[in-house]
Design a protein around this nucleic acid. Structure first.
Lengths: 350, 350
DNA sequence: GAGAAAAATGTAAGCGTTTTCATATAATTC
DNA sequence: GAATTATATGAAAACGCTTACATTTTTCTC
């Protein structure tokens, strides 16, 4: 199949040495115009392209980066990947996707699957893992970083000394509460995330802070934990409503992400709640379908594509700083002013 | 950064030749257990991993495939990619994504961007292109195939002698019409696709065939062309409705894909139509959000992930057959029996 | 236990580039 | 026009593996 000529063929046909061909190839200017032209003609005629493999042998840099993602099917990750891909491309790098497993599953030498490819750097998208798995991951990371630069994406413990791009989750949660409080809500639920997740801990911090600033009590039954899918979101809200007297039902829900928000819409509707009159919902990630849900979903746009791009920039820059990514609240129709007069659970103390 | 040992280091430390190390590495059985153990110990201790680059130099096969997609952001393509990725992985290959541009944009030697990477094969996802661009693409393909096996995905002209996995678009369209006719509809619109697209021609063929079988006339104003986004779908339907007297409005719409269907829902709602009573809508691709639209969208599930996987299988098999991919109609709430009694436009002839 | 066959290991030549260093050629200088 | 410097080119050694072939060691066989 490989009808490909080598640099030797070109050299022979052009009547020069391979060194000269190589120089022409890489645009060095120490080649006389006549020779260059001659060589270029042969290259064009034979459709010759240098093998990036062979190039990698000598030049030590493969000009390819990696990104490890939990899964690509989740539209978020597809967006991060796209952003990272574009960023890499802009710098003349290629971008390779690796599934989580490459990092954790390997019995033998984890992480090194990546090392084997001699990537010039890798972006790693962090997600919650149970403690012992997380422990393994940390070790993999340590190991991996001996081989190539690493940039972390997502909510990373401050103790981590890796270059990182993340969201200020606390900030997002706090602002969202603030927004809902501004609409008159006082019974605000937070749905999604793993209870033990550091990430969500920070979300929780912001949530509590927002409530506190509005002089609202933190109500434990308004905090539900669940995975990031629509089904799980639907179940979580359903369970919350079941456990509460309708009078105490939240009037607003902050969902982990848009998928969870979609599930909440579904549950609410099945329960006969009017949206958004009886329940305001805020999602996160601003998926492409958010505007087409009924009611159109208000969501935090986390600019995931940009996130991917910035991760590449950081990776290539070689710096080790931690960066916060921007986000914006996109207001649509899923949030309405709270109608129920007196907020429940408001105690004398507040 | 590259703290990596080479095969020489391992050999030296284990007191054997590099050939032996290589043999241990590749699990050849002509190595005595004692030696193997010794070498493996050193490998483990030094965290050694052979460079896939150097491997590629000799073994001619890089164990990496490519897939070129119009864009990854579209959830469909993300699914195809995921499927292809998994398929490749299962066979021990890696999968690299390339944007369309790698194939067409290049002034100099198109296609060869891919050749440069010495892929073991490439999957190409076809999409409509205006004639002259398409011409260029065809040439790129011809050129590219000299270097590596190619598999095409999507609706490819029968004249193409490439191995292909595609949908029988005519079949899908015909069945969809049949389904809607079964619900009593006779004013069935088809929205989406490029007028000049071969692909959609086949869709059109099925559409017409379905109408014919139901003894319904083909009405030109029920056929609108547009791109594959929600916005374009919304605009297309809006324009169609504007151009028609309400009495002649279609009672059912077959949309190019779910995005277009979402746009149609939007337009219909803005026009004050009740969904699905006044307008039934069928989408295509069965995106994850389809069940959460209001009304939940009936859609053709094209099993895109499977499509990607099958493309890999076909690519690796080396066969040149053309395969048809499976699809299924997923019924949800967006299609209802037609209520308007007498279908318009039905002429004596029918 | 000598000779033959089988198994284990080593040697060295690639693979297709880049790159250093040497060499040949051309352009300067006086 | 000889000496000097700049410029253009070539020869050859890496890069880290695989693999055909040669060689050594072990295991049979009678």
């Amino acid at each position: 199949m490989s009808v490909n000529s080598t640099i030797y063929d070109i050299a022979a046909e052009a009547g020069v040495s391979i060194a000269t061909v190589s120089r022409v190839l890489r645009g060095e200017r120490s080649v006389s115009p006549a020779t260059r032209e001659k060589v270029e003609a042969v290259i064009a005629r034979r459709n010759y392209r240098p093998s990036s493999i062979a190039r990698g042998m000598t030049s030590k840099t493969t000009h390819s980066l990696g990104i490890v993602l939990p899964k690509l099917l989740n539209p978020n990750y597809a967006m991060i990947f796209t952003g990272a891909y574009d960023g890499a491309r802009r710098h003349g790098y290629s971008m390779n996707m690796f599934p989580w497993k490459s990092l954790t599953d390997q019995r033998s030498t984890p992480a090194l699957l990546l090392a084997e490819r001699r990537l010039d750097g890798v972006i790693i998208c962090l997600e919650y893992l149970p403690p012992e798995e997380n422990e393994r991951l940390m070790r993999s990371l340590q190991e991996l970083r001996q081989y190539m630069p690493i940039v972390l994406i997502g909510c990373v413990p401050a103790a981590f000394e890796y270059p990182t791009i993340s969201y200020n989750m606390a900030d997002i949660a706090r602002s969202t509460v603030e927004y809902l409080v501004g609409l008159g809500h006082s019974k605000i639920a937070l749905i999604g995330g793993v209870e033990a997740d550091r990430d969500d801990l920070r979300r929780d911090v912001g949530y509590r802070q927002g409530l506190e600033e509005a002089q609202l009590p933190y109500v434990d039954s308004y905090r539900a934990y669940c995975g990031g899918t629509a089904e799980e979101g639907a179940a979580a809200l359903d369970q919350m409503l079941s456990s509460l007297l309708p009078a105490h039902w939240p009037t607003a829900v902050i969902a982990l992400n848009d998928l969870v928000a979609m599930g909440c819409q579904d549950t609410a509707r099945k329960r006969g709640l009017r949206l958004p009159e009886d329940l305001s919902i805020v999602g996160c990630d601003n998926l492409f379908c958010a505007p087409y849900l009924i009611p159109a979903l208000t969501s935090i746009d986390t600019h995931q594509q940009l996130l991917g791009q910035k991760a590449v920039e950081l990776l290539l820059s070689g710096e080790t700083r931690r960066e916060n990514a921007a986000w914006t609240l996109v207001r649509r129709d899923s949030c309405a002013p709270c109608k129920s007069g007196e907020p429940a659970f408001r105690t004398a103390g507040y």
